[in-house]
């Protein structure tokens, strides 16, 4: 029983990363109609950002958790203004190629400087050690990651559903042109939303630094799974991406434990099933249907 619960917890922790990344990807897709292939690269930059800040400036993890997402968010906004925006009126494949190119450039720049070996990153001291969860003990740091990702997901959901900004984002995501004709300058909101999605990816990267291998490939390995997560949850659906993030996290961890040979493909089997049964994803809205 405790073994099962422990797997469940492992799944939720992996799911935390999937959820944060899928959330950003989903918001960006909803608002801009752009599938951001560079999302994994920004996750990787988040981890490297934490590493570089510690290595060269002695900035600790907590500061990195604050500084790195903001910095990457700003870089994301600049990229959006300078490149993504210019291609938005063209066929979506152009931005797909652009962000794919950005991902390759970022990844290779890091490889050029640090190679492909993983960089060590220590856990923050307060979060070192184990915490007793009753049935089993679990690393404090992992518990923190899980709690933070849940809190962040809930916060994003609250902003989207309870605030005026959220209302504008929902409206623009659903029908940009109509929103525009109702007096809202949709273009003004596109850049900050892109930056926000990138910042979330960066934050996931900082969170990953102390528990995952920090190397130039870490984002590329993850992004394919994240795309599957977004498809399972429903493109553009915020609740869907978060829920699918945790579901896929648990699926992979249980898969790793019980049928390791299949663990890599389970997520894609799930994706295929979802596409067969609910083509718009678990929480997606069918095109043209009222709800």
């Amino acid at each position: 029983m405790s073994g099962l619960l422990q797997q469940l917890f492992n799944g939720l922790v992996s799911g935390s990363f999937y959820a944060l990344l899928a959330l950003g990807l989903s918001v960006i897709f909803g608002m801009l109609g752009v599938v951001n292939f560079a999302h994994g690269a920004f996750y990787m930059l988040g981890a490297f950002g934490a590493f570089v800040l510690l290595d060269s400036a002695g900035l600790n993890w907590w500061l990195a958790l604050l500084v790195v997402p903001i910095l990457l968010g700003v870089i994301g906004m600049v990229l959006e203004r300078a490149f993504v925006h210019r291609l938005m009126h063209l066929f979506p494949l152009y931005n797909f190629l652009l962000t794919f190119g950005i991902a390759l450039i970022l990844q290779d720049l890091i490889r050029l400087k640090y190679g492909v070996t993983s960089q060590p990153y220590p856990r923050p001291t307060i979060l070192d050690g184990m915490v007793d969860l009753g049935v089993f003990t679990y690393p404090k740091y992992q518990v923190f990651v899980l709690v933070l990702s849940i809190v962040l997901s809930v916060l994003v959901w609250l902003v989207l559903t309870r605030t005026r900004v959220g209302m504008i984002v929902r409206a623009s995501t659903e029908r940009a042109e109509l929103t525009q004709s109702l007096g809202i300058d949709v273009r003004r909101w596109v850049t900050p939303v892109f930056g926000f999605g990138i910042a979330l990816a960066g934050l996931a990267g900082v969170l990953a630094a102390p528990m995952r291998a920090v190397n130039s490939e870490m984002g590329a390995d993850l992004i394919i799974v994240i795309f599957a997560v977004v498809v399972i949850g429903g493109l553009g659906s915020v609740v869907g991406s978060v829920a699918a993030g945790y579901i896929v996290g648990m699926l992979t961890e249980f898969g790793n434990f019980y049928i390791p040979a299949l663990s890599q493909i389970l997520v894609f089997v799930l994706m295929a099933l979802v596409l067969l049964l609910r083509p718009a994803g678990l929480f997606g809205r069918e095109e043209g249907s009222p709800a």
Binding site: E174, L178, S181, L182, G183
Partner: peptide, 24 residues
Amino acid sequence: LPPHKRCRIGLGYVPDDRGIFASL
């Protein structure tokens, strides 16, 4: 003028499909 500015000077638009948001 872009659409949002036309709206702001007093043009109120109801499109042929009524333009009601499902997510609102």
